[in-house]
């Protein structure tokens, strides 16, 4: 059976009005009726107080508060309206070096540019079907990062995966490809 997305609340955070329009158009075409927009992380954090978002699609590079800072704030601030909200981060090729930081900030998933209707739909279905467990550690709160591990035995992967066993190392191109394959 299909799922009706009409009741889903989605917040779009991007300072690029054309990208906001693209994502909003896709969401509305998929049946999502309730969308809000924010220009940066600070604006989005305020918006979350009034809008009970189920999913947040956020860009990475914004000012004054970027996507990483926004994610950290949502997950860890004492006055966070919803520390468990699903945060899906948009990333461009030039931002790959910041993927690990995004994982460690507490993002739920990634959406690589170019943005497509299918990729957005897949991310939505992903959080509906396979919502992550959350973990609370001394230095981290957010979705369980173990799910980003690459299962080398399976060979081909259908979801985003990252190796986190060696946090100081940069991601290899292969790992990045798998992470963004979605």
């Amino acid at each position: 059976m299909n799922v009706d997305l009409e009741r889903l609340n989605v917040l779009i955070v991007d300072d690029n009005k054309h990208m906001v329009n693209l994502i909003k158009t896709i969401l509305h075409s998929l049946g999502v009726r309730n969308t809000r927009e924010a220009m940066d992380g600070a604006d989005a954090f305020t918006e979350l107080r009034n809008f009970p978002a189920d999913i947040v699609f956020t860009d990475l590079s914004m000012s004054p508060l970027d996507g990483l800072e926004f994610t950290l704030l949502v997950r860890n601030a004492k006055d966070s309206p919803n520390p468990y909200v699903h945060i899906i981060m948009l990333t461009g090729h030039t931002e790959f070096g910041r993927l690990r930081a995004a994982v460690n900030a507490g993002v739920t998933d990634f959406l690589a540019k170019p943005v497509s209707a299918k990729a957005i739909y897949q991310r939505i279905m992903g959080v509906i079907h396979n919502p992550p467990a959350f973990v609370r550690e001394k230095s981290y709160f957010g979705p369980d990062r173990k799910r980003f591990q690459i299962d080398r035995l399976k060979g081909s992967l259908q979801r985003a995966h990252v190796v986190l066993e060696a946090p100081e190392e940069n991601l290899s191109e292969d790992e990045i490809d798998k992470l963004l394959a979605g």
């Binding site: 799922v3 075409s29 998929l30 049946g31 209707a117 299918k118 739909y121 897949q122 279905m125 079907h129």
Partner: peptide
């Protein structure tokens, strides 16, 4: 739950 291919077609 499956993807609604008609909705996806509309979105595309």
């Amino acid at each position: 739950v499956e993807m609604d291919m008609e909705a996806l077609r509309r979105a595309e």
